[in-house]
């Protein structure tokens, strides 16, 4: 039995998430994965952007970084690259990671930097009140798509695969054990890992689309998802409107911080044409006190 409280900032409870929201299940899956791997809390940094899912960083007892909208992966790249000893996780959402932050998402996958992205996909902008997102299915309603979404939607996992991620899995809060296992595998993977987690938003998505009570929202997800093993046997027509879950990609490839460390090693003996003056180190405390002229 996992002692989840060990990983939580209980004083910050209650969570801001609505009744019926699935985000807590994804978060629990992440904490379970961390516990099973046995990571040192001091060596974990969780980075998030802006949105409902991104508020998760406030509740977990690690090094936590709640950044600007869409930029969590960029900040996380700086953290991981500056100190590769840290385990770096990103908590983000469909809008945060694939609309305003889409560029960082694909480039971190291309770079294959060792960051695990846990992307809460609820098909809507929840925090701002239910606006259309890049994953809102065509025809479904949002406060900024009052007549139904006229646009098509992203398949986020396939986007990550095409961009070069070394591990991609898709799960759902309707199968929380599997979801947590995917997160565990993603964290263990040396390289860019994406775990796309389907999670219901009865308040902003379900209500506008007349999807019934919270439980009905979960049923809606269940009806739409199909395991990758079962999907293999179906035709493309039969898979239309289905969301394939499971481990979609798991490959071994060179990881960015490792490659850079090798680069540093290989150029070590090349002489540097650089003037390095003698350095007198002044502690900032003395500098603040005006003890040294800067």
């Amino acid at each position: 039995m996992i002692d989840f409280e060990k990983y939580l900032r209980i004083k910050k409870f209650p969570l801001i998430w609505c009744a019926g929201c699935g985000n807590g299940i994804v978060l629990k899956g992440m904490l379970g994965a961390i516990d099973r791997i046995g990571l040192d809390k001091n060596k974990i940094t969780v980075v998030s952007g802006i949105g409902c899912s991104s508020r998760a960083t406030g509740y977990v007892d690690f090094n936590t970084l709640h950044t600007t909208h869409g930029r969590a992966i960029a900040f996380a790249t700086g953290v991981k690259f500056a100190n590769p000893d840290l385990t770096v996780l990103v908590v983000t959402g469909d809008g945060d990671a694939t609309a305003i932050g889409g560029n960082h998402f694909i480039h971190a996958a291309r770079r294959n930097i060792d960051i695990t992205v846990i992307l809460y996909n609820n098909w809507i902008y929840g925090m701002t009140g239910g606006q259309v997102s890049p994953t809102t299915p065509h025809g479904m309603r949002a406060t900024t798509a009052p007549f139904g979404n006229p646009e098509g939607s992203f398949d986020i996992s396939r986007l990550a695969i095409a961009a070069g991620a070394s591990f991609v899995a898709r799960g759902s809060v309707t199968s929380p054990v599997k979801l947590s296992q995917y997160i565990e595998k993603g964290i263990r993977k040396k390289g860019f890992a994406l775990i796309e987690a389907f999670t219901p938003c009865p308040t902003a998505f379900g209500r506008q689309n007349k999807m019934g009570k919270a439980l009905d929202n979960l049923e809606w997800i269940k009806e739409r998802t199909i395991d990758v093993k079962k999907a293999d046997a179906l035709s493309p027509e039969e898979l239309e409107d289905k969301l394939v879950t499971g481990i979609l990609v798991d490959v071994e490839k060179s990881e960015y911080t490792d490659l850079y460390a090798k680069l540093v090693e290989s150029v070590r003996d090349i002489p540097v044409d650089l003037h390095i003056p003698e350095r007198e180190v002044v502690p900032a405390s003395i500098a603040v006190a005006g003890g040294e002229e800067l």
Partner: peptide, 21 residues
């Protein structure tokens, strides 16, 4: 690191500083 855009570059710089650089 050459980042994918100016915004990402500024984000990475802040992340690196928080990691001690």
């Amino acid at each position: 690191i050459q980042m994918e855009d100016e915004i990402g570059a500024m984000g990475a710089v802040i992340g690196a500083s928080l990691a001690g650089a």
